[in-house]
Amino acid sequence: MLKKYIIFALIAVLGFYLASTFKAIPFGANRLGDLNNPETVSAFYLQKSPEDLHVANTITAIVVNFRGFDTLGEVTVLFLAVTGLMSILYRKEEEETEERLAIPSSSLVRTGAKILFPLILVLGIYVFVHGHLTPGGGFQGGAIIATGFLLMLITYKTFYTNHNVMTWLESIAGLGFVAAGLYGLIVYGSFLQNTAWTGNLNDLISGGLIPLIYIFIGIKVGTELTSVLDTLLNIKPRKK
């Protein structure tokens, strides 16, 4: 019981200090400074993104170009987490597998899923191909593609993703990201340096390497999240 009161006191102290800290940071105040002679890093990004890179979506420019090395690290963390999950839940082939679904889905759900699945895939691909023009990008597009596969996995008993295709797509996307970085290192002298030609603002093919790298990230995130769902859904259910 004493432990409970200590934890309540701890939470109260933490809440008080969080609240008093954020009272000092005014909500909605402009902290970017002068945009023409940038002194803060955000103002620098807002000025450089349309002028030098010709990328309309500043967030894409930050994620893929200005902080591209950071994003490579985050994609690696994602890959390691998925690898860990699959090795923890590894099941030998000999174990008999039960059906994923105890009760088959109704024909309404099956037909609806079949119609929606290609549309969701097209939406996901649209989101990551247009990542440098509109809100969206590789991470969002990959997540949308994974929801499409999720719909098929929970509707059909017999729907399985092909592990060889998944492995190859994932590897090629990861290697493509690193290859784009090495291209910048060899040709321009620093890792993930963008190409000199960046096109015009708001063109589909613009921004140099940025759309290419975001397509690689989209394929990588999509296949990894799909393998997570596939692995988790194929665990043998507990005995009743």
């Binding site: 955000s42 967030i59 930050i62 950071d70 985050e74 963390v77 987490a81 991470f139 990894e224 988790l232």
Partner: peptide
């Protein structure tokens, strides 16, 4: 300010992967 949005964007995806790892454990 675009920088916090770019940080949160990747943090959500990483958070999902880490949650999935914790649940598998």
């Amino acid at each position: 300010d675009p920088v916090p949005q770019a940080l949160v964007l990747t943090a959500i995806v990483i958070g999902f992967a880490v949650t999935a790892l914790a649940l598998s454990l």
